[in-house]
């Protein structure tokens, strides 16, 4: 099947869906795009959803249109969020509180002089960062970048040391044998198995990541056990990822059949 035929197939399929929706809405079974702003929005959202899904067949102009729109819209979305959530209250609101309070957003009118100076520094650093777009002297953007990198390095060093090291090591230091008054030989066998897997599983997986010694003999066997533990972790992560994506897909199908076409009741 050549490119031309494939394109025709995609266009034909989308045309059929749109024709069905038009007839369906003309019969009063669903809201037409001409009825209200929300109706128009729902039709547009359905068109975008179908355009993205059309990529499952092959690359086509509908998908490329939706993809290009997505890039532009998402860049602007995050830019607007950054401006209204950060720049205006945290920088502009400290530099010109009266103006911002009157025209833009509610901010405290009483600003500490140190905070005002810091806001000025932020403005200068921000402008230096935007200088990256200028044709010459883009090296100046390294200064604000250095602040970002320095902050991230200094913060993450201690933050991860607490959350990903000490707080992960301490729960793994548990008794290996779980006693029980009622169980066979006075040992809770399931609890003991759990403790053993928790402790030795962690050690085995850590040994797998320890590359300073060649993984041979006993160390090799332990490292192999570590791979099994890691495979279970990856399997679980994979299972959850698949479920998350399927849930999103179900959400889109629900939108198409319940919200747009209204062939299934809510």
């Amino acid at each position: 099947m050549n490119e031309q035929t494939r394109r025709l197939l995609v266009v034909g399929a989308v045309g059929l869906v749109v024709l069905f929706a038009l007839v369906w809405s003309a019969l009063g079974q669903m809201e037409g795009f001409w009825v209200s702003g929300a109706g128009l929005g729902t039709w547009f959202a359905a068109f975008l959803t179908l355009s993205i899904l059309s990529f499952l067949y092959d690359d086509n102009p509908f998908y490329r249109f939706a993809e290009s729109l997505f890039i532009g819209v998402s860049a602007a979305y995050w830019m607007v969020q950054g401006i209204w959530q950060q720049l205006i209250p945290n920088m502009l609101g400290r530099l010109a509180p009266a103006f911002v309070n009157e025209h833009m957003a509610q901010v405290p009118l009483d600003v500490d002089p140190v905070d005002r100076s810091m806001a000025l520094v932020q403005l200068v650093l921000g402008c230096l960062l935007l200088w990256r777009l200028a044709p010459k002297g883009t090296w100046i953007a390294r200064w604000p970048l250095a602040v970002i990198v320095g902050w991230a390095a200094g913060t993450n060093l201690t933050r991860y040391l607490v959350s990903d090291f000490t707080k992960q090591v301490s729960p793994a230091m548990i008794p290996l044998v779980e006693p029980s008054q009622t169980a066979f030989l006075g040992i809770d066998w399931i609890g003991t198995l759990t403790a053993l897997v928790t402790v030795f599983g962690l050690l085995a997986a850590l040994i797998y990541f320890f590359f300073s010694v060649e993984h041979k003999g006993f160390l090799g066997q332990v490292s192999r056990g570590g791979i099994w533990i890691l495979m279970i972790t990856f399997g679980a992560a994979f299972g959850y990822t698949v479920m998350g994506r399927i849930a999103l897909l179900v959400g889109r199908m629900e939108f198409l059949f319940v919200d747009w076409l209204q062939v299934i009741g809510p």
């Binding site: 995050w78 950060q86 945290n90 932020q122 650093l125 921000g126 604000p144 970002i148 902050w151 991230a152």
Partner: peptide
């Protein structure tokens, strides 16, 4: 400052 610069980065 980091948050503001992140907004400038956007």
């Amino acid at each position: 400052t980091f948050d503001v610069l992140a907004a400038f980065a956007f």
